[in-house]
Nucleic acid binder design. Structure first.
Lengths: 193, 193
DNA sequence: ACAGAAGTTGACTCCATGGTCAAGAAGCTA
DNA sequence: TAGCTTCTTGACCATGGAGTCAACTTCTGT
């Protein structure tokens, strides 16, 4: 759609790259809502330049989201895809998604808010969701996961973790992980009690 | 400590009462962080009056917190206290706290932020926590709840729900409740698997 | 080395919110 | 009802972040 991009001036190219780097850095540690002034400062550039180059906050996010999260999620899908046991696949998928959320504040923002109109993101999320659906139904068919768990539940469980992490209730990674275990146990098939 | 309160003028008394009512109303539906202008509007009074009468946002909250949440929490403690079965007590306590959070956004704010220096609140929270500890250890002694669940976990599980509800991920009360079930099931004693 | 295009800047506007205070309004008492 | 005191008001200050733009700076091709 966009024409053959007439070449930009050298300093412009340099800046765009610098801003991308800075954004990755800043967003990774502070989430997608970090003030753009900070990105600007980190890139040694003025806020105006960011707007000039990327149009808006969202533009910048779109330009960076792939490297920021998409790769990680694809990595998870790939890794889980390599497993055989249905229950292991199910639990590993959730666990890895949840830990990604803990490790990268930005991942939540992506999963939570940036979605509505970032094309590549929507695509990615759909893909993940489709994958999750497969994992879930397999695990249920194998009798490893409770039957009343719906795909929406799964989706919700992930969003929920995002919110929790984002809120910054102090908890060490170990505690976080231990508590995820509680959750997972609650999702397993309940033999008649 | 405060002297015998020389009587206030009639309009002042009327306003204080009106503001309290309005605050209850507004905070109930919007949480404790709702702009005070809204409270003022609802009370048919100017923002300045609120500050004059209550000193600060926190002052207003303190003046209202009891009627807003304290009673509800005490109600829960009382109701659960009447139950006998340890597991039922445990689950009922959590369930009711969680539903309270769903039903009243303000409850979260109370549990989450207002705490640090509101005396009555601190007191109440301590009481609830002590109660929860009893419920937990009883349930664990009875072998109904997993042994590796700590009191901190319990506390955290409640805060967590608060955050989730506050974030306003759309979910009907039914879905919310159904998902709580997953959580509770994950907390039960796990017979050797 | 210069003209003109491309790029950058930072001060500016806007908006929302918390909180303050001098001036004016209203209640109370004699 | 006058006069004193208590109250209320709403305009005002401060903060902090989003986004804009006219003026200035830096490239680049000739």
């Amino acid at each position: 759609m966009t024409g053959p991009e007439r070449p930009r001036r050298a300093d412009a190219r340099r800046n765009v790259e610098g801003i991308r780097r800075a954004a990755l850095d800043v967003f990774r540690s502070g989430g997608l809502t970090t003030p753009l002034d900070e990105v600007a400062r980190a890139a040694g550039v003025s806020k105006g330049t960011i707007y000039h180059r990327f149009g808006s906050r969202r533009g910048l996010i779109d330009a960076v989201v792939d490297e920021l999260v998409a790769e990680r999620i694809q990595g998870i899908i790939a890794a889980v895809g390599r497993l055989d046991d249905p229950l292991a696949r199910f639990e590993e998928y959730l666990l890895r998604m949840w830990l990604l959320q803990y490790d990268e504040p930005a991942a939540n923002d992506v999963l939570l808010r940036a979605m509505p109109d970032s094309e590549p993101l929507v695509h990615l999320c759909e893909r993940a969701q489709r994958f999750a659906l497969g994992v879930l139904t397999d695990a249920q068919r194998a009798g490893a996961v409770r039957a009343d768990l719906t795909p929406e539940d799964l989706h919700h469980l992930i969003l929920e973790r995002g919110v929790v992490v984002q809120a910054g209730l102090r908890q060490s990674r170990e505690d976080y992980q231990r508590r995820l275990r509680f959750l997972l146990d609650g999702l397993r098939h309940v033999p008649a009690r």
